[in-house]
Design a protein around this nucleic acid. Structure first.
Length: 883
DNA sequence: CGATCCCGCCACATT
DNA sequence: AATGTGGCGGGATCG
């Protein structure tokens, strides 16, 4: 068929064919096909090859045809062969009919000789590992392809992964800039930090699980694992343009996958990652089931990446044997410790200054932390965002804008992750954790029961920097433990006595910097609120959706609980994007699905779920000095221990109680059901903030009482550090559909705890719970974008206040609580993955303001179809400054 | 026969 | 429309 097509197709193909001819010409007999004649003819025609061809020619004197693989093959092969000398080849005689000849020609180099790994080595050999900073080496893809005798496609494979590590950066169309390994350690460091955020906890958790955890908590845990979501990688990717242009194509999965893959190694204690685990983690599938084909494809890609990494000397193939058998895996053999340099200090020549803009991308990695994030764009050539933005912008307004897509993706990813986690967990459970070392490094996330969460992150990615493992770990552990074992289940209501929820709680991780909105959708309630940030930082918006299903409500019974909710939408606010837009990062989230067992008890359907919500805020701080600005904010500073604050809100948003503070240090003990917990991490840790939502409180509302244990719900981890500036607002809405309380009332029920930490995170976090939300917002998809779904988002004054009180570093919080954002509703059809399972539960985070208006909420429709489009909405912030 | 992964079609993005 | 990119997966090889 191909042949056939080619002939037809003409333009492109011909070229390829031609080469063939050439090759044949070369001397060999033709390989096999009769085709040649025609081709020959073609050639001439084709003469005018692409300009590049000329270059190529020049470059490689050899063949005029560059791309042709065939030709190339021929040419190169011989060369290669000669080098290697080898190939007995001969095997393929098949064709050749006649003549004798050569085998040489034909000999196929054998697959190995054509392997990506080998090709990559050749590629790398062409450039110095540590080029002088002064000169920049540019790489022409066409040229290299022809020189190496391969198709350009292959070069892309190599370059994409090299780009993910910043060994090269794309400068322009067919041009890449070679940076060498100067910044490799910096890049790895960044990835490690990022990985730490995303996967670290989990990994650590798992790894130590047996060890530490156990003693600490008890045993089990497997399930507990929190998961991470994937969040986008901070670094490099550039966000901004991203939004617009950048994202293009699927996010460049190869690049992203590569970074994630590397991250896994960096956070893995054992430094060994099995392919299957990596694949599962990276799968985007929406569905829980990771379908086999998808898995297969992912694995394929991982091989591609692994080949390149192997060529770089960063990993090597190994096999791990687990209970289940031997599995292919890769071991990190690259540097593990990275000098602390953050940026400048060390040595290398940093790319030196400034990267020209064009190159920023490349350099980007370096910047990093200090700066915050930067985003680089890939298309540097454009300079800036403008182009991108401009373009994008318009797009953005559209419903289907790329942005949305992005978001969708994120959502889907999250979902996938959740699924993976769930799956993984289940598996692990079965298997048990026996092999700590090897295996499970990653497994992660437990997924909660049905609920789904989506989070949309706001753009910004920043990385937090520090990582403190320990603390964090402990946190997790603690949490988990609690979660898992609620020892004191008593707390609330577990009807069964069991906290049903617990087992699978999802955790969400947010990149710190961004704002997030979480909406729980599932059932009806959804909230979404946009936040806007104005501040500088923020900008962007992030969107997030989270839908959380209420764990409690289980699906079934819940019918009541929920009304069916539609999925939620989220929106994104886009705040402005200013310079930084980036983002990209999506966050991930996890979606929980229902727990295995579910106890539904708690929630009973109906009301239970809902109405009452408690939130708790948790805070932990490690005291890390690091905390940014923090200053302390007023009250809370957490000492090391956690603090909780509760805040309850009353009905009026306006006057919310300001309270913020209650701190109990350990919360663990207290029983109560929190809806969400917010934990502020200390600086030391990775700066995560954790939000846990336990939605479910059925009616119980006790605020204080609750204890962690009850948390079974999903947790959200938000890295705070970076973002300190952003406030996070969460409103959980638990909605029970039923909830008796109408909007207004909600407040009553809901109590919030709020803790702000002084830490770095200045960001205030708001957690609101809503008891009820009205879910149904009109689902109609087509809302005008213009009209904001929620017309107003104001943050409730309270919030605002609180923010202020807290710290306002974040501009966002500041004043504008009100409407910064505009929501756009997207259009129509986006589907959210989330919807997939409607969860019964929902937990959301909402902004206070939003709470007020139930109306605003929207729900997504379900679209179950795919994640692709998410239902997110975007919020935009009014202004945008261009850069 | 399962692990690898080359090859290149073809969709999408950029010019 | 042409060309650049790169997802993706069939199916060939390897071990």
């Amino acid at each position: 068929e191909n042949i056939f097509d080619r002939s037809r197709m003409a333009p492109k193909t011909p070229i390829k064919n031609e080469p063939v001819d050439l090759s044949k010409q070369k001397g060999c007999t033709p390989e096999r096909n009769p085709v040649t004649p025609v081709k020959l003819i073609d050639r001439p025609q084709s003469d005018p090859w692409t300009p590049t061809a000329n270059l190529k020619i020049l470059v490689s004197a050899a063949s005029p045809d560059m791309r042709d693989r065939e030709k190339k093959k021929e040419l190169f092969r011989p060369i290669e062969n000669s080098e290697q000398s080898d190939t007995p080849d001969s095997l393929q005689y098949d064709i050749v009919d006649d003549s004798t000849v050569d085998e040489f020609e034909k000999q196929r180099p054998s697959r190995k000789q054509k392997s990506l790994g080998l090709l990559c080595q050749k590629f790398l050999a062409r450039y110095p590992s540590y080029p002088l900073s002064t000169e920049k080496t540019t790489i022409s893809l066409d040229e290299v392809a022809s020189i190496l005798g391969v198709e350009r496609r292959r070069i892309y494979d190599i370059v994409n992964v090299l780009e993910s590590l910043h060994l090269v950066s794309r400068v322009a169309k067919n041009q890449y800039c070679w940076h060498g390994r100067h910044n490799l350690s910096q890049t790895l460091k960044t990835l490690q930090e990022a990985g730490e955020l995303q996967y670290g906890e989990l990994m650590t958790f798992f790894q130590h699980k047996e060890q530490d955890l156990e003693y600490k908590f008890g045993e089990r845990k497997k399930e507990t694992v929190p998961d991470t979501q994937d969040r986008p990688l901070p670094d490099f990717s550039e966000p901004d343009c991203t939004s617009a242009s950048a994202n293009s194509r699927k996010d460049k999965s190869l690049r992203i996958m590569s970074q994630k893959f590397v991250m896994l190694f960096l956070v893995s204690k054992t430094k060994i990652v099995t392919l299957d685990i990596a694949a599962k983690i990276l799968i985007e599938e929406t569905q829980d089931t990771v379908d086999h084909s998808k898995f297969k494809t992912k694995v394929r890609r991982l091989y591609d990446i692994a080949n390149v990494l192997t060529s770089l000397g960063l990993i090597k193939k190994v096999h791990v044997t687990e209970e289940r058998g031997r599995k292919p895996a890769f071991k990190w053999i690259g540097p593990v410790e990275f000098p602390g340099k953050t940026d400048e200090p060390r040595g290398h020549s940093p790319m030196s200054d400034p990267l020209p803009q064009a190159q920023r991308g490349a350099c980007a990695p370096y910047h990093t932390c200090a700066t915050g994030n930067q985003r680089f764009t890939r298309h540097a050539s454009f300079n800036g965002a403008q182009p991108c933005e401009g373009t994008r912008r318009k797009v953005s307004s559209e419903p289907n804008s790329p942005r949305q897509e992005r978001q969708d993706k994120y959502c889907s990813k999250m979902i996938n992750l959740a699924a993976v986690c769930r799956q993984k967990i289940e598996e692990d459970t079965r298997y048990v954790v026996r092999n700590p070392s090897v295996t499970s490094p990653l497994s992660l996330l437990p997924v909660p029961g049905d609920s789904d969460f989506c989070v949309n992150p706001l753009p910004q990615a920043v990385f937090p920097v520090l990582q403190a493992d320990v603390p964090s770990l402990s946190l997790l552990n603690g949490v988990s433990s609690q979660a898992l074992h609620p020892s004191a289940p008593a707390a609330s209501k577990t009807a069964n006595g069991k906290p049903a929820l617990l087992p699978n709680q999802p955790f969400l991780c947010f990149p710190s910097s961004s704002l997030f909105m979480l909406c729980g959708s599932l059932q009806e309630n959804n909230l979404r609120e946009p936040l806007s940030t104005t501040g500088e930082v923020g900008n962007r918006n992030a969107e997030i959706q989270a839908a959380v299903p209420p764990a409690a409500c289980q699906k079934r019974s819940s019918h009541k609980c929920t009304s069916p909710s539609a999925p939620v939408d989220d929106e994104e606010p886009a705040a402005k994007k200013q310079t930084m837009e980036q983002r990209d990062v999506p966050l991930s989230l996890v979606v929980p699905k229902k727990p295995f067992e579910s106890p539904k008890a708690e929630f009973t359907p109906g009301s239970g779920c809902t109405s009452a919500v408690h939130l708790e805020a948790f805070h932990l701080d490690l005291a890390s000095p690091a905390a940014p600005e923090g200053a302390d904010k007023e009250s809370t500073k957490p000492s090391d221990s956690q603090e909780q604050e509760k805040w309850s809100q009353n009905k009026d948003p306006d006057e919310p109680s300001p309270g913020k503070e209650h701190i109990s240090t350990e919360n663990a003990n207290q029983p109560f059901l929190p809806q969400y917990l917010y934990v502020q991490p200390t600086a030391g840790l990775s700066s995560f903030n954790f939000l846990f939502s336990a939605n479910q409180a059925p009616g119980a509302i006790s605020l204080a009482a609750s204890q962690l244990p009850s948390l079974s719900v999903p947790c959200v981890v938000v890295p705070s550090a970076a973002l300190a500036s952003f406030p996070v607002v969460c409103s959980p809405a638990v909605t029970s559909p039923l909830s008796p309380v109408p909007d207004g009332s909600f407040s009553a029920a809901a109590s919030m705890n709020f803790s702000m930490s002084s830490l770095a995170s200045t960001t205030p976090v708001f957690i609101g719970t809503t008891a009820v939300v009205t879910p149904k917002v009109s689902p109609t998809p087509s809302v005008d974008p213009q009209q904001p779904a929620h017309p107003t988002l104001h943050l409730s004054p309270v919030l605002a206040r609180s923010c202020g009180a807290v710290k306002l570093d974040s501009p966002m919080c500041m004043g504008q609580p009100v409407t910064l954002l505009k929501l756009q509703q997207p259009s129509s059809t986006p589907l959210t993955p989330k919807s997939i399972r409607p969860a019964r539960h929902e937990a959301f985070f909402k902004t206070p303001g939003s709470l007020g208006d139930p109306v605003a909420w929207k729900k997504n429709e379900g679209n179950q179809t795919r994640n692709a489009s998410s239902v997110q909405r975007r919020l935009e912030i009014s202004s945008t400054s261009p850069d």
